[in-house]
Design a protein around this nucleic acid. Structure first.
Lengths: 183, 183
DNA sequence: GAACTAACGCAAAATGTTTGCGTTAGAATT
DNA sequence: AATTCTAACGCAAACATTTTGCGTTAGTTC
């Protein structure tokens, strides 16, 4: 079923995708879709959330700075494109208590968790995952979904460097100078 | 027409609102609605964006800290409620080039502009509006739209105090000590 | 092995959406 | 002031989608 939706999304604009079409593509009747998902909105939200599930751990560049930049930039590139924005819209549009949007949040945190754990394993000082979500991912999401002047590649780097600079400053005031590299 | 939508939203769940219903409430025919807005999604997005237009300047508490807290808390209270979340969803769901979501961003920045200008008029040092959007409003939006553990009242205060603390720190390194109060 | 459950297909009914055509009200032009 | 033009609307028919009742089937439990 998810495959059917993806196939149609690849060849038609969003507003031209209907439940009967999906049903036909998937070889079932529309009533099956309606009974399982309720309506088109929920189905698309479910598919979009599933598509956002990471298929691999974030790339390991050797430094926290590199890992965060790579992750943020890849996410931005994916979600600021028309296709990605449509996924985000579909995910947010759902009013389901199953909360496809919540799954996105979970996926993001899981990836960041890996990056942070790796950095700590290398002895790097790191912000908490919640802080990264708040100060890097959230502004990017806002930029993608709301901002009139769209957010761009360098902004992602700036956000990452800002939070790293802050955690360094904080660190300097709580641990002896020189206990860890400047970045 | 907007009044008709609001009236229906006040007495029915979101999924029970249809174009023919709105048309009847507004005393027009459905075709009028379809021709003007295209579909229900766009109409709801338009109405939701309009409802977010501020009807008054932000309350003046006498300090930047107080103004920002008041604004952030009022916004959070409004948008984290089921009704407000529905507005946000409707706004984001639109794929219109007219970008109802962009209007929200504009409204927010306009209100923050007022708060910042007032603070500067009092001689307070302030973050830029863009920074406040990025570090206070964006995390709140993310919390409302995505987070599994919902964002709450104290978080808004924390976000405001964090950005003010940062701008104070920055200030200390670029202007003579004592040139402005600690907060 | 029989009863139960959940999910599905089918088809009809209900509801929502699109479109062509005629009308009207207001603005612009002469 | 009369005329033309335009944009928006109502109406109604054609069309598409959504909902629902009923019968069937596959898988599960007792």
């Amino acid at each position: 079923m998810h495959a059917a939706v993806c196939a149609l999304q690849a060849e038609r604009p969003r507003h031209a995708i209907t439940v009967p079409l999906i049903a036909q593509q998937a070889g079932v009747t529309p009533s099956t879709v309606y009974r399982r998902w309720g309506d088109l909105t929920e189905l698309l939200a479910d598919v979009a959330a599933e598509r956002m599930r990471p298929d691999a751990p974030p790339t390991d560049t050797g430094t926290l700075h590199g890992d965060l930049c790579a992750y943020a930039e890849q996410y931005l590139e994916e979600m600021s494109a028309p296709t990605g924005r449509a996924y985000l819209r579909d995910v947010v549009a759902s009013a389901d208590p199953g909360r496809p949007a919540g799954r996105c949040d979970t996926y993001i945190r899981a990836q960041l968790e890996i990056i942070v754990a790796r950095a700590q394993g290398r002895g790097e000082r790191t912000p908490r995952v919640g802080e990264i979500v708040e100060q890097v991912m959230a502004p990017m999401m806002y930029g993608i979904l709301f901002a009139v002047t769209p957010i761009a590649y360098p902004d992602a780097v700036r956000l990452v460097e800002a939070i790293l600079a802050r955690s360094t400053v904080l660190a300097r005031s709580t641990v002896p100078a020189g206990a860890h590299p400047a970045r």
